[in-house]
Design a protein around this nucleic acid. Structure first.
Lengths: 204, 204
DNA sequence: AATAAAACAGAACATCGTTCATAAAGTCAA
DNA sequence: TTGACTTTATGAACGATGTTCTGTTTTATT
């Protein structure tokens, strides 16, 4: 068959991304497969490769959406009536909540690694940075007296810490059932955010 | 060719594991490939499959060694002349050091996930538990007054946190160069181990 | 209508994990 | 030593996968 034109280029691309998204949600990142997705959207494999240079970039497109959804989820946890510290805590817990309720998609974001590091889309890098900056700014607001370098370190330690807890818990590597994910996260957060003693970090 | 018998079953198995280990160290977990390893050890592909049910189990054998090496590295950081808190800190830093200097092997341990979760070798589970228990006991020694449940939470939060910092930093997802991995880890540790104020964790 | 360009299909190729029938070499009793 | 049996090793072959490529059909252009 030749040219059909019953769908826009953009429509097919959209359908492919959604099909891939569904695959990941159901069977994880391993469930994605060019032929399967092509069949799902009613087009041939070759057509898929005119929309995405390779499967990695399709996965990346899905992951970009996951990152955006994650950002929305974290943003929604913020509330201007709360203190910066409380907001910070809510954001961290929102991250945990997202990972817990969108596990395969969330895992895909971090499990997937490109063969060629160079063709990582700009938009993807930016999206990750945007989410992180959001957190960093909230942290800065929570500790206005802390110098920038220290804020940078604290934010990374806390955020990566939360990430690690989700990562190990959800892949069953912390010798624990998933019920305690929240408890562990609370434990970590408590060390960083203490409403009373706003300890200023002195570098060693 | 038929039976050769110039190597023991165990010798070939050993050679395969070492070849796979080298592959991972050089090209990461994606570099492993049945034909390549078979050629490396001078045997055919079929022979490999008489020693390992599948490639996953070969990778697992390599990862088991990595876990053992990691345990040794963490153990070596302990020193009976130091306080439990100092030992705890040294162990965490040893983990970071190991991840930093054995990045591909370390990443392989956590990136790899079995298709069939059921055939995870007992020894592998036990090795992971052994390492974690080591940390937990040291933590308990550092905070003798803390109740068991709290120790459990604190240890998991700290250890998973350290893991997350390594994971994100080494996969370049923290918007930072690797130089600051240690600084970030120190920041996290400082929140858990404060020689002065041994804050007792009250559950909320 | 003729030509060019774009869209699409699906066969084809390379690479991978895995299986399998077969051959060679060893073992051991008669 | 011979012959039957077992063990070990092979590599061709199968199926699944990512990716490429050629050809065909449709649309756009002149």
């Amino acid at each position: 068959m030749g040219r059909r034109n019953d769908h826009t280029r953009e429509e097919i691309r959209e359908a492919a991304i959604q099909a891939a998204q569904l695959c990941i949600q159901q069977d994880g990142i391993q469930g994605i497969n060019a032929r399967h997705i092509a069949q799902d959207i009613g087009y041939a494999v070759g057509t898929l490769y005119q929309l995405f240079k390779n499967m990695d970039l399709l996965i990346l497109a899905v992951n970009l959406r996951t990152l955006k959804a994650l950002e929305q989820h974290v943003l929604a946890a913020c509330n201007s009536t709360l203190s910066a510290q409380e907001n910070m805590q809510q954001m961290a817990l929102a991250y945990v909540d997202f990972a817990l309720h969108n596990t395969p998609s969330w895992q895909a974001v971090f499990a997937h690694q490109l063969k060629d590091e160079q063709d990582m889309p700009q938009a993807y890098q930016e999206q990750r940075l945007r989410l992180f900056t959001l957190v960093e700014q909230q942290f800065k607001a929570a500790f206005p007296d802390m110098d920038a370098q220290q804020v940078s370190l604290e934010t990374r330690a806390l955020w990566a810490g939360i990430h690690g807890i989700c990562s190990l818990t959800l892949s069953h590597k912390l010798h624990d059932n998933e019920m305690t994910l929240n408890d562990i996260a609370h434990t970590l957060i408590a060390h960083f955010l203490q409403p009373e003693s706003n300890q200023q970090g002195e570098k060693s």
